[in-house]
Nucleic acid binder design. Structure first.
Lengths: 159, 159
DNA sequence: CACAATCGTTAGTCGTCCGAACGGTTCGTT
DNA sequence: AACGAACCGTTCGGACGACTAACGATTGTG
């Protein structure tokens, strides 16, 4: 079998779910490496970005907006607070809450992460032409929208 | 802005890497749920499919062909062997190796998993037209190909 | 023969996602 | 005013996929 054993077409390799999850792994790896080069990971970026976008908020609110599970917020906020990228202060008007806010250093870090992120996108989409990139993200958006709408949005007060 | 706090467009939500990983999560969830309904997970399917495709082989060879890390093969094969979907026998010609082979029950299970998988694909791509599905998988294939070619293929003997 | 490479195995890590539980706090109703 | 429901932060743990390090046993090769 000098030559026959080499090829491994593997029939599942053309399945959308396979293509999707594997490509996502590469994407994740690219971004994670970029982030870790400045000592951060995905949750940190999401948190910082959400904070800048919506302003100071409680952990629960941040979690909902950034899609991070409440259970994981504690550690993520701790890590950010340890590096003083974020500040945790009690809410005087509701003693259950901590109000998380972005520090100047946090904002700088966010700029760094955004730079890394942008580079990552480019590396990720390298083999695609601008038009293809657009179609790709458009299709992805439709898919994601469809599925989050069906399962992932229990926040609507539906009223 | 009594109403401005509701919306959370979140600027990262249009990034390809985000769309990709999130959509992949949904895909993974769909497939995992389908698999777990017959007591299996991704590794099991990959192993069974590879076995059927390439015939009996050592764990290391199987791992290479199915993209499963050697360290994770032990557990996966154990789980399959416990359910008698697979057989582990010593290789007489090389006592380091175990030869893994598919049982009749394993083949039946594989059929089940394939059925589940196909249903999952359909659910995943539900919002897309047939043409869109094709373009989508084509773009994904190009991306995945590009990235695995660059990083994921240390098997080449590059002789 | 001695050394390098391979095989199976064990035991960990990491990141993302998720569920269960609990004490403390606030709010809506009565 | 009081009570129960709902919410907040927190801790613990688990699933899954991917990955690293190390080790004994075996093999093949210089």
């Amino acid at each position: 079998m000098p030559t026959s054993a080499e090829k491994t077409p593997a029939r599942w390799e053309s399945l959308p779910s396979w293509l999707l999850t594997q490509t996502a792994n590469h994407a994740h790896r690219l971004v994670a490496e970029a982030f870790s080069s400045v000592g951060a990971r995905g949750y940190h970026y999401r948190l910082l970005a959400t904070l800048e976008e919506c302003g100071p908020a409680s952990q629960a609110a941040l979690g909902r907006r950034s899609g991070i599970h409440l259970s994981d917020m504690v550690a993520a906020v701790n890590e950010l607070a340890d590096r003083e990228l974020v500040e945790r202060a009690p809410d005087p008007s509701d003693r259950r809450r901590n109000i998380i806010s972005l520090t100047a250093a946090g904002k700088r870090q966010l700029r760094q992460l955004e730079k890394k992120l942008a580079a990552g996108q480019d590396e990720l989409l390298a083999p695609l032409s601008p038009e293809e990139r657009q179609r790709f993200t458009e299709l992805l958006s439709r898919l994601l929208d469809h599925h989050t709408r069906r399962t992932g949005t229990p926040d609507e007060p539906w009223r």
